[in-house]
């Protein structure tokens, strides 16, 4: 791994252990800063995302969790005035290098949004969408079926695959969106509060699904629900808001602590993390 040496090594000492323990980093985030126009969103975030693990990003609202994961598939490019500084290396390659194509990035790094957003098309066409866009149209039926099976939705929809996706329940729609993202065999799955619009039963189904998906995918999930982070993730990153009007620095999100989920929820190192997970704040 001579690539490693070429990049600045800014990980905290305890994270060094994590790096050694897990070996393969899918993403290496170094001094990441993002802002919208003059408004900063996150500042100086450095961490690694590890292969075939579920990493949860938690923190109070306004701490830049969503902004943070949208840096991984360059969705922030689509926001006028958004600026991303610092570096993200994806499997050793600078994601924000001049000649990297954001569209190619998104073909490898799938995303599921907070609100289920199926297209106003049939269930089949929704799953086939990414395949068609990426010209993976050989064995299209098989690929669609496989994706729906992976998303644990096949049995529920196999008899009405040509029905409009809008006829599905919210939870089914969200699993459809997961199937849609899985269909193109992405490397990473980004999930931006995927259960916040769902009822508890639908939420459980998605969480179960995530456990199964972990075998094949690296997952990064943003959640405002600490129990969910504790239930599903291997690693947890806690973000907080720093700066305020009184300190004449506008508020921005910072990474407070990043560790195994167990560590974060049982013996956090930082006072702010402890306050947050014990409910004294946020």
């Amino acid at each position: 791994m001579n690539v490693m040496t070429q990049r600045p090594n800014v990980l905290a000492p305890d994270l060094e252990d994590l790096v050694n323990e897990h070996e393969t980093s899918v993403f290496e985030v170094r001094d990441l800063t993002a802002s919208y126009g003059a408004t900063p969103a996150i500042e100086n975030v450095s961490l690694d995302i590890f292969d075939k693990k579920i990493t949860a990003v938690i923190g109070p609202s306004g701490c830049g969790k969503s902004t943070f994961i949208r840096c991984f598939n360059r969705m922030n490019d689509l926001v006028a005035g958004a600026h991303v500084g610092g570096k993200i290396f994806y499997r050793g390659e600078d994601l924000y290098a001049e000649d990297v194509d954001a569209v190619e990035v998104r073909r490898r790094i799938g995303m599921v949004f907070q609100q289920p957003n199926p297209f106003p098309k049939s269930i089949y066409d929704n799953v086939a969408f990414g395949l068609r866009v990426n010209r993976m149209t050989d064995h299209l039926d098989d690929r669609v079926e496989k994706a729906l099976q992976d998303a644990a939705l096949w049995d529920e929809v196999k008899r009405k695959i040509k029905d409009p996706a809008s006829a599905l329940s919210g939870g089914q729609q969200q699993r459809l969106c997961i199937a849609r993202a899985l269909a193109t065999n992405p490397d990473v799955l980004l999930m931006d509060e995927p259960c916040s619009a769902l009822d508890p039963i639908a939420t459980t189904k998605i969480e179960d699904l995530m456990h199964e998906l972990k075998a094949d995918y690296t997952i990064v999930i943003v959640t405002h629900n600490m129990q969910q982070a504790a239930r599903v993730s291997d690693l947890t990153a806690f973000f907080s808001v720093e700066g305020s009007a009184e300190t004449d620095r506008s508020p921005r999100g910072v990474l407070v602590e990043y560790d195994t989920t167990e560590q974060i929820f049982t013996a956090p190192n930082d006072r702010r993390t402890e306050d947050y997970i014990t409910g004294r704040f946020g």
Binding site: G92, E93, D101, V103, E104
Partner: peptide, 17 residues
């Protein structure tokens, strides 16, 4: 370095004329 770049293929895009 070269090997990783090919594997991820982030640059292998068409120019989209």
């Amino acid at each position: 370095m070269q090997a990783t770049a090919t594997r991820t293929g982030l640059r292998s895009q068409r120019k989209r004329p």
